[in-house]
């Protein structure tokens, strides 16, 4: 498997490229909380790899990447992404795609490293707002409680709930054994100046019935080059429920960006 060491941790990464005689855009994708790179791999990544070089990684504590006991703050995620770009040898500005909690990393990275980001694609992405950290920490703690009822690998000799049991074990460890909850509680809310510092074009793709509608409104108000695409009838899980539409929107955006660069 493709592992690279960044900031002292082994990161699981996947780089999806197909043969091409033309220069292709570099697309880096940041997944959400209690998810992993498969959230992209099994939905939009392989399709987008037909037109772009796609870089995926499991954020610290997630998927197959190492799980340190501490260091789950915004600056840690940003430093990880910065280090990964170096390890991939990506010098040119990247197209940064985020989903849900991955938005915390993507927006902070675009603010801190504006010359490294050609564009942002925010898929149902969260913005660090006042109280968000506490809210997420409470949700995760509550979710962990429900995990106690999950059976193990086998029941009466029959394999059951293998997948769920594995997921609950990993996320349970992440929540119980690391500083994730306290670090999330301490997330610094994005200030107006932070949002105004995002200079690259941003495409936001959200569902019409998303619970994070307030986040879009704030982004729309302060991010200068902001386009919002609402997918009707979709909720927060558009990556799963409406992956074809999401992929098509990103393809169009990459094509537009390519045209802009040429002209």
């Amino acid at each position: 498997m493709a592992f690279v060491t960044v900031n002292g941790l082994n990161f699981h990464t996947q780089v999806l490229k197909t043969e091409s005689d033309r220069a292709r855009p570099a697309v880096v994708m940041v997944h959400g909380l209690t998810a992993n790179l498969a959230a992209y791999y099994c939905t939009i990544a392989n399709g987008l790899a037909q037109v772009a070089d796609v870089y995926l990684y499991d954020q610290r504590g997630h998927g197959l990447t190492e799980m340190p006991t501490s260091g789950y703050g915004e600056s840690d995620y940003v430093a990880d992404l910065r280090g990964l770009l170096d390890s991939w040898g990506l010098d040119e500005p990247i197209h940064l795609v985020s989903n849900s909690f991955g938005g915390i990393t993507a927006l902070a990275f675009a603010r801190d490293y504006p010359t490294h980001v050609a564009s942002l694609v925010l898929i149902e992405s969260l913005l660090s707002t006042e109280g968000l950290g506490d809210h997420l920490a409470r949700e995760l703690a509550a979710w962990l409680q429900t995990g106690n009822a999950v059976p193990g690998y086998k029941r009466d000799g029959v394999a059951v709930h293998r997948k769920l049991a594995r997921q609950k074990r990993q996320w349970g460890r992440l929540i119980r054994k690391t500083s994730l909850l306290s670090d999330i509680s301490n997330l610094t809310p994005f200030a107006t100046a932070d949002l105004k510092a995002i200079s690259c074009p941003a495409l936001a793709i959200y569902g019409s019935s998303t619970p994070v509608i307030d986040h879009i409104r704030i982004l729309e108000r302060y991010v200068a080059k902001f386009d919002l695409h609402v997918i009707e009838g979709a909720g927060h899980s558009i990556m799963v429920d409406r992956s074809s539409e999401v992929e098509e929107l990103i393809r169009d955006r990459l094509a537009d960006q390519s045209t802009l660069v040429k002209s």
Binding site: T18, N36, L37, Y41, N46, A49, Q50, H161, R166, Q167
Partner: peptide
């Protein structure tokens, strides 16, 4: 088999390692 999505990624990687360029699993999945 109740394979997790991250395990599916591992499987795909093993397939690519086994067959190399002969099998374009990425395009197929795409």
């Amino acid at each position: 088999l109740e394979i997790e999505s991250i395990e599916f990624v591992t499987f795909a990687e093993m397939l690519v390692k086994r067959y190399g360029d002969q099998v374009n699993f990425i395009a197929w999945l795409g």
